[in-house]
Amino acid sequence: MQLYLPIADLPVNVFLILAMGAAVGFVSGMFGIGGGFLMTPLLIFIGITPAVAVASVASHIAASSFSGAISYWRRRAIDPALALVLLIGGTIGTALGVSTFTLLRSLGQLDLTIALSYVVLLTTVGALMFWEGLLAMRRIRRGVPAPRRTHGWIHTLPLKMRFKRSKMYLSVIPVVVIGVVIGFLGAVMGIGGGFILVPVMIYLLRVPTTTVIGTSMVLTLFTMLFATVLHAVTNHLVDAVLALMLMVGGVTGAQFGARAGQKIRSEQLRLLLGLLILAVGIRFAVELVIRPTELFTIREIGVNE
Rank of each mutant, 00 (worst) to 15 (best):
R148F: 13
N235A: 14
L87N: 07
D239P: 05
G32L: 09
P6N: 01
A81V: 12
T150F: 15
L82T: 00
T297I: 09
P158K: 03
A8M: 01
F256C: 01
F163L: 00
V229C: 00
W73A: 14
R141C: 08
H151T: 14
I114F: 01
A23W: 06
T94N: 05
K160M: 11
R76Q: 11
E267W: 13
L246H: 02
T123W: 03
I191D: 05
S266R: 10
M39T: 08
I277G: 04
V57Y: 03
A23R: 07
F130G: 02
G108L: 04
G90T: 02
V177N: 08
R291D: 08
V120Y: 09
M189Q: 02
S171C: 01
T223A: 04
H236N: 02
K164V: 01
K263D: 09
P199L: 05
G281W: 03
T156L: 12
V280Y: 05
A258H: 10
L84N: 10
F45H: 10
S117W: 07
F37S: 13
A77L: 07
V177T: 03
T220R: 06
V125S: 04
V248I: 15
M247N: 03
L84C: 12
M245P: 10
Y4L: 08
M161A: 14
L110N: 06
R142K: 15
G281Q: 06
G257F: 07
R283Q: 15
R141E: 10
I7V: 15
A232R: 09
S28Q: 05
V172S: 13
S65R: 11
I290D: 11
S28E: 00
S56L: 09
A53H: 08
I48P: 08
V251P: 09
L273D: 01
G25F: 01
F31L: 12
I33F: 00
T234W: 14
V52H: 03
L87W: 03
I298K: 10
F163G: 06
G97I: 08
A115N: 12
W153T: 07
G29M: 09
G281K: 05
I298Y: 12
N235G: 05
S56A: 10
A23S: 02
K167E: 15
I70K: 01
L5E: 02
G126A: 00
V188T: 07
P208E: 01
V175I: 12
L107A: 08
S67Q: 10
Y72F: 08
